[in-house]
Design a protein around this nucleic acid. Structure first.
Lengths: 136, 136, 136, 136
DNA sequence: GTGGTCTAGACCACC
DNA sequence: GTGGTCTAGACCACG
């Protein structure tokens, strides 16, 4: 009961070559989000490390590192000779993890605001303005 | 008209040993915020590199890098033999820079939310909840 | 004097999908134990490679490897066209092999204990406690 | 308050070249045991990845992987430019982890015994005999 | 000096 | 075909 993805399966992952953020981290963040948001469902077969490496124009080792990290987090399941699958995660656990990165980022933003002595109103205004750009 | 800070001047800068964020970056972010928010006024004499290194229990080269970076940004000015001072910055320029880090952080948070397919309402709720913790 | 097993013969072999242990190894360990403990007697006809592969939902090459390994150990015998049988093994040889895996596992456990500087008493307590769970 | 280890610090780690066990795993198991058993105390500076690689005659990348894994487990703490230290772990957490590998190994041994239908007495005898060799 | 990332490629094990 | 390990070396970032 593992869904097979087509051979040419393409993950919507975008690499920003300009960014100082490490490659494996960029890929990891996006793949993690795809799983936690349910865009990749349980049991889905991911591209092989070689395929994804080719797609993202990076080394096989780099992709392997991403898969390793996500497996350590319990989001992926790897079987030698077979491939790498989206692991079973409890609905509860997934919901918990889904927003954790967002909450952290919001907290960080608010702390940045407090460091420059933003008022509550000032922060809210910045937030709402940014939201209008993203959810018009 | 350069105000002298006492020898024992202490900057309210906190290092988080646990964080993976580089030392020079942690210090830089906080010192920049102190200047941009007006907590350190124009002309104020900062602690010498050696003094600050001792206070923060880090290497002098680390502090040197921070002072260099902020000088390059035009926030600090170093005079040979006298020390490092908070530079003159136009009100307009300061206001512009003051919130830039905050805006960036908010943008990053919203993008993290979109990656896991947060709705507008969901994001707003997370933001407001976090705000309540910081501005009770 | 070779006993025939019915076509639908089912071996009590359980695959653990979660384990990182290779499939052929999981199957091999259990089949070997069935033979060495006498639960499968001399001359018994085993399921065909294809049958066992179907039962365990694995590849025929995996089962083939298991049969090959056990044949190399002298526990199985394959006759072209007829199938694979439990081989004749001297009582003495079987007794010797039966406990070898157990002894090895016990040794490994004790060495793990010594690495974290377990006392003799500590190790004995752990062992006895675990035994109580398995032989209540 | 981090204890400095002498430059030539040598860890009592033995590699078995014959074993099929991966290098990074062999090193990891032993280093983990040194920490959990208290032979390496909190704050101790470990050999640099290059030093340890030279000592164990393996690649820097392999050592890095070990340090990464143990850091992910919370046993090590790494600071760029500075080195790798034994992390602070609560007494309680350390005690819990210290025996977990041992318990697992004992469980595995007992299960191996049950597969070949060992009696309780038989298993106990094997265990006690093995103990006599290790704690004479 | 330290660690952090990335590569290209080798060789092996599993299915 | 798949993943798993390991290497040697490059280049960068931090203190």
């Amino acid at each position: 009961d593992t869904k097979k993805a087509g051979e040419g399966m393409r993950l919507p992952i975008q690499i920003n070559e300009q960014s100082a953020e490490p490659l494996y981290h960029q890929i990891g963040v996006q793949l993690r989000a795809l799983i936690l948001s349910g865009q990749l469902q349980e049991g889905t077969l991911l591209p092989s490390i070689r395929e994804l490496a080719q797609m993202e124009k990076c080394s096989v080792t780099t992709v392997k590192r991403v898969y390793n990290d996500l497996e350590a987090e319990g989001l992926l399941r790897t079987r030698q000779g077979t491939g790498t699958y989206v692991a079973q995660v409890s609905e509860q656990e997934r919901d918990k993890q889904r927003l954790s990165a967002v909450v952290e980022a919001i907290e960080a933003a608010i702390e940045a605001g407090k460091r420059v002595q933003c008022s509550e109103a000032e922060l809210k205004q910045i937030f709402l303005e940014a939201m209008q750009h993203h959810y018009p």
